[in-house]
Write a protein that binds this DNA or RNA. Structure first.
Lengths: 229, 229
DNA sequence: AGGAAGCCGTACCGTACGTTACGGTTCGGT
DNA sequence: ACCGAACCGTAACGTACGGTACGGCTTCCT
């Protein structure tokens, strides 16, 4: 079930490009994982080990040596993709109403871009399929790097906004979930189910702005002074 | 690919319990479809024809005679489940602010109950898996009976609310999508990905009320008079 | 009673795919 | 030049599963 050999980097205990335990993929391994991502998008569910080997011009034996089994390959792929989505720095300069709004818009637009990308759709489909077969924890990993990752990055912004007297809420988590809902709405489920919904840059920008405005209507303080009790 | 014999009811052209073309399942067939639903929830992805036959105490030959192929069985199952979710009449009496709020809360609570039910989760997972393998249109069917069905039923309510001067919006679809987002938030994706999120009756009622309040904050008219231009 | 139809249980077939094994090639180290 | 390790391409194996065939049982019609 669980791959025993969290893929080892050829030389067993040699400090390669990264921590020897967390296991950063080598360039060649990354190429394989990219092939997996590409196949997921093109071929959908028919993601066979043979197809991966052919696409990546490597042997199946190598796949198994590096990743243990099919599940290990999938897990490594999810983590590989997650490792390069860490976008957006959102420099916490001093917050005013305008910069807060901009930050929220950026978050919203970035999130919409991610969930509407073919890569994310394919990855989520695979993870959901696996969650159904209650094998491995692919679903958790995707959740951790998607929904919960963005939550962890947005919540500090919300709390800074509150500290600056720009937002009002008791429960940060609840406020974040509202934002999440206003931004995502029905987009993700429709895309996952194969609806032909198209999101261009213009629509994303527009929707992100609209969601941000709605969020600020619900949680923004019209009186921008810190609580002068 | 497409099952040729949209399941026929034993006696070819005899008017059974329903239209001979739309094909309402017989009691026995319904029992089989219930077995499929039960297996989906318990066994997840390993939904094999043999397992269905064993669970339903019928032969695989019968399954194929009735439903054509595996896809036909799945499609029939989705439609069978959809056929009995048609809940909520929402009698359009005269609308005031209070009854509108109640209607919206009912919609929200009902929708949350549906998407958090094991049946819905299992069904959506299967549909998403199929959408990935670009075979059949299971995803579309689920979408049609889920997201779009509730839209079709809620939009008239919203428009009545607008006609009564209780709501203000230009785009009914946009208003509905906002409501959808406020209610669903991250619930569906988390459940689909296997997160251990529990929604009891109390939480559903609370969340439905909160989402409704937020929606009314965004779209409600504080001045409840019809447009007295 | 006799026959036909529907259906259950099971055996069977073909294929797809995960996994393993193996021969041949490249390449770095000595 | 030689050795061994890593790796590629491919063949082979075992199994799971979709789909089919068949024998026997029940039911219903005449």
């Amino acid at each position: 079930m669980v791959s025993a050999t969290k893929f080892s980097a050829t030389k067993s205990s040699a400090p390669e490009t990264a921590a020897p335990d967390a296991a950063e993929p080598t360039a060649r391994q990354a190429a394989v994982l990219d092939a997996v991502l590409a196949l997921m998008q093109e071929k959908g569910g028919q993601l066979t080990m043979t197809a991966v080997a052919r696409r990546a011009s490597c042997s199946k034996e190598t796949l198994y040596k590096w990743f243990g089994d099919r599940d290990g390959l999938l897990t490594a792929t999810v983590q590989w993709q997650a490792s390069r989505v860490r976008a957006g720095r959102y420099d916490r300069q001093r917050l005013d109403a305008s910069s807060l709004r901009d930050s929220l818009r950026d978050f919203a637009a970035n999130w919409l871009s991610v969930i509407s990308s073919p890569t994310s759709i394919a990855l989520n489909r695979v993870a959901i399929t696996h969650a159904a077969s209650q094998q491995s924890n692919l679903g958790q990993i995707v959740l951790e790097n998607g929904r919960f990752a963005i939550g962890g990055r947005l919540k500090p912004v919300l709390e800074e906004g509150r500290a600056a007297g720009l937002l009002a809420f008791d429960d940060t988590e609840a406020a974040f979930r509202t934002f999440f809902g206003l931004v995502g709405r029905d987009v993700q489920i429709r895309l996952l189910l194969g609806d032909g919904l198209k999101l261009g840059k213009a629509e994303i920008a527009r929707d992100a702005a609209a969601a941000t405005d709605q969020f600020l209507t619900l949680y923004g303080r019209t009186d921008p002074k810190p609580a002068a009790a």
